[in-house]
Nucleic acid binder design. Sequence first.
DNA 1: CTATTAAGTGGAGAACACTCCTTTTATATT
DNA 2: AATATAAAAGGAGTGTTCTCCACTTAATAG
Lengths: 205, 205
Amino acid sequence: MAKEIGASTVRTERRDAAENRQRILNVAIRLFEQHGVEHVSMNQIAAEAQIGSGTLYRRYRNKSELCLDLIKDNVVLLFEDIETYLEQNRSRPPSLRLKGILSLFIRFREKKAQLLTGVEDSSSSQSKTRTRSPIHDELHQLLVELFDEINKREPVHPESAFRADMLLMALSKDAYLFQKEVRGYSPETILEQVCLTFIPPERDN
Amino acid sequence: MAKEIGASTVRTERRDAAENRQRILNVAIRLFEQHGVEHVSMNQIAAEAQIGSGTLYRRYRNKSELCLDLIKDNVVLLFEDIETYLEQNRSRPPSLRLKGILSLFIRFREKKAQLLTGVEDSSSSQSKTRTRSPIHDELHQLLVELFDEINKREPVHPESAFRADMLLMALSKDAYLFQKEVRGYSPETILEQVCLTFIPPERDN
DNA sequence: CTATTAAGTGGAGAACACTCCTTTTATATT
DNA sequence: AATATAAAAGGAGTGTTCTCCACTTAATAG
């Protein structure tokens, strides 16, 4: 009668559930590659995977989460790359390190454009304001640290958190695509413009 | 048999159409005030205005356009205010004029938050990238001119168009609300941060 | 081996944006 | 007054996201 709570019993994932999960992932990858992330609906995925749509939504609250699951590994790699880069350039000026990170991120963006776009798609329900994607949160923290370091030499400056928000916004799906498609900038040009805009010039002090 | 094309016959708006238009506008205002822009659907408006949804969509392609129609007058006023301000401060430094414009826009944003938010709601169909709202386009042009002027004194600088894009993005619905709600900034603080971020300090040259 | 039960499933259906096509009608023309 | 016609209306229909909940089932405890 007394229920075991916590510790002892951990209820592993059910076998059939695991199968379904794998099926969803496979179908999603296939459909995304075939038609492009934007043109594949959750219904379609559910149907193709032969599960009810409720089942799909039970696992992924929306397409963003599904996309995130699909590139999770790549995201981990990105952050490992960043970490390595930061360690190898520890002694160089923070503005340069910042630029390096941005370069890495832009390369990532280009490589995984489709899915990353899916992840960021504000999409669903209300909360545009609420949840930034976890990728952004982690990058934000890195940026804040670098800005703090840069700011030590600057007499007046915006809050690091604010500047980081702005910078990330500049690299977000919408802004980035706008610069590419409407302004016609290349990834390299965007990087350069972003640096000029958000990184104050070196003080030769 | 021969059709008159163009010039002579101009087919005025039909009387019943005009009535419907007014009805839509009235209903929309009422519902928006009653439930908030976000929570009113096009269907609801159509139903309440006693017209078919097709009729509503025939006039406004989406909620954004409807909202825009509702604040069009205020937008005109905003730009008149800006123009007046610019004329009265013609001789002051461009960075200061820029700040003035931003201040006016933020005040506008606060006053017409609801509807403006509706206008910007990227919402609908694909084209997130495509059409910036006309308000943004016009502001963008003003900003570019000011940045060009500022840049004359700066040795290195980002493209004015780019910087203007970033600045407007900072004041867009999503970013602005994020700063208010998540970062907890007041409108004044946001203005200040934006200036610090996007307007280079005066050169005492 | 059975019973219990939380985890999982399926799919109907609500709510919504938006389209398409038929029918209606105000207006201009004769 | 009759007719032609482009403008307007209407609303059923499509495709979407997402919720709800009655039902099923795998894992576990006894």
